[in-house]
Design a protein around this nucleic acid. Sequence first.
DNA 1: TCAAAAGTGTTCAACTTACACCCATGG
DNA 2: CCATGGGTGTAAGTTGAACACTTTTGA
Lengths: 230, 230
Amino acid sequence: MVLNNYRKEDKVLLAIDCIIFGFYQEELKILLVERDFKPAKGEWSLIGGFLKMQENLEEAAARILKNLTGLNKVYMEQVHCYSKIDRDPEERTISVTYFALINIEHHCKELLRQNPIKWFDIKDIPTLIFDHNIMVKEALTLLRNRISCKPIGFELLPEKFTMRQLQKLYEAILDTELDKRNFINKFNSLDLLTKLKEKDMSSSKKGAFLFEFDQNKYHKKVEKGFSFKI
Amino acid sequence: MVLNNYRKEDKVLLAIDCIIFGFYQEELKILLVERDFKPAKGEWSLIGGFLKMQENLEEAAARILKNLTGLNKVYMEQVHCYSKIDRDPEERTISVTYFALINIEHHCKELLRQNPIKWFDIKDIPTLIFDHNIMVKEALTLLRNRISCKPIGFELLPEKFTMRQLQKLYEAILDTELDKRNFINKFNSLDLLTKLKEKDMSSSKKGAFLFEFDQNKYHKKVEKGFSFKI
DNA sequence: TCAAAAGTGTTCAACTTACACCCATGG
DNA sequence: CCATGGGTGTAAGTTGAACACTTTTGA
C-alpha cells in the first residue's frame, strides 16, 4: 500500500506565485506583471517563478520578490497550494502562493520602469491568467484574518505614521468604514504604539502627531500571553 | 528575469501527509503509522503518499485516507506546504499536509488490524519522523481556529450526540474546560441543532437527549451572512 | 475669518462570565 | 434511598458601538 521506492514516483514542477500588497493614496494595491512568455503571453498575472533544488519555498518567494522589487526582508506568509490538473495548460504545475506586504515607498522605481509590472487597486483587479484571481481572493481573505489579530499592517506603512493613516489602512484591507474615536481608543488600549513629538504637516494645517510601532513591547507582551482582536 | 521555458526547471517529489483526527473516550486522537520502509523504518509517522500525475492534491489526500481507513467523503482541509531542503533525507521532497476529521466508529477495524497503524492521544504523540511533529502542531492550531467559527466538530461525532459529548469535544480540541450552562446557552443561541425525542441512556440513569446538527439550516443562515465565534 | 483635518469622552446595548440547585432514574 | 450525571437561569462585569463638538492654522 505504501510505496517503498521514491524513484517510482511522479515529479512535478513547483511554482511560487506572490500576491504583493502595497498601500498608497488610502487604497490597498497589488503588484501584477504582464507576461512576456507563453502560455498566456500579454495577459496580466501574479509575479511568480519556479522552485529550484537548492532553496526552500520561503527562499524562492524572497528571491522572486527581490528580483522584481529590489526589496529584502519583506514580510511574507504562505497562503495555499493549488494543484488542479490543468491549471497551467503548458505543463502540470503545482503552485504555492505567498502574500507579501511591502512599503510602497521603498519599492525600487527603476525596476518598476524596467519591467512590465504595475500596481492595481484591489477593487480593480483585471482578469488574470489561470487560477490567479482565486489566489488573490484567498490571499486577501488571509490578510484580513491576519491583520485582525497580528500587528502586520505596519509593514505596509512608513516607519512613522499618523493614526489616520493606520485607520485608513485597516479600512482599505477590511473594506469597511471605522469610527475614528473607537479606532484610536482601541489601539491605545492595546498599548503597542509610541507617540512621537513630531507631527506630519502634509495632510492638514494643524498637523497630525506621528506614531511608531513598538515591536519590542509587542513581543514582550506576546510572551506573557497577550493577543488581540480588531 | 522570468524564465520562458518550463522544461529548464527543476522538478520535485510532492508528498501528501494527513493529520487524521478522531474523538473517543472524551479525548482527541490522531492516527499514526509505523513506517515499514526506508528511510526511518520502524518509526512513527503521519500517514502519507505521493501525488500522482492524474490527480490533484485533494484527490491524493482522499485516496491515501481511503486506503488506510476505508472511508470516503471525509472532511479534509489543506494546512501547509513544507519545503525544507533536507526534511526528507532520502530525496528532495515537498510535503503538503491535510487534516482530516473522521468518525472513529466508522473507521474500518479490519484495516486497523491489517496495517501497522494506531490511534494516539493528542497529548501523547511520540517523536515522529522528519518534520511531522511540527505538522501535527500546526494542523492542531488550524483545527482550533476552524472549530471556533465553523461547525466542523460534528464530523468527529456520531450523527446523534448529546450536548455533553459536544462540550467534551470542544474541550478536548481547545484544551480547556468550559462551563456547561454557558456552553449550552451559546450553542442554543446559534440555533443550529435539532433536539430529538430520543435519549442516550449509556452514560447515566436519567438519560441525555440526543441532538443532530442541521446542515441545511446552517447553510441558509450562512447565505444570509451568519457567522459565529465560540 | 473660514475651511479642513485633528483630537477628544460618554452613554447605552450586547455579550461574556461566574455561579448553585433540583431532577430523574437504576441499582 | 441515594449516587450519578442531566438539565436549567440570573446577575455582574466587560466590551463594543454610536455619537458631536472644539482646536489649530494656513490660505
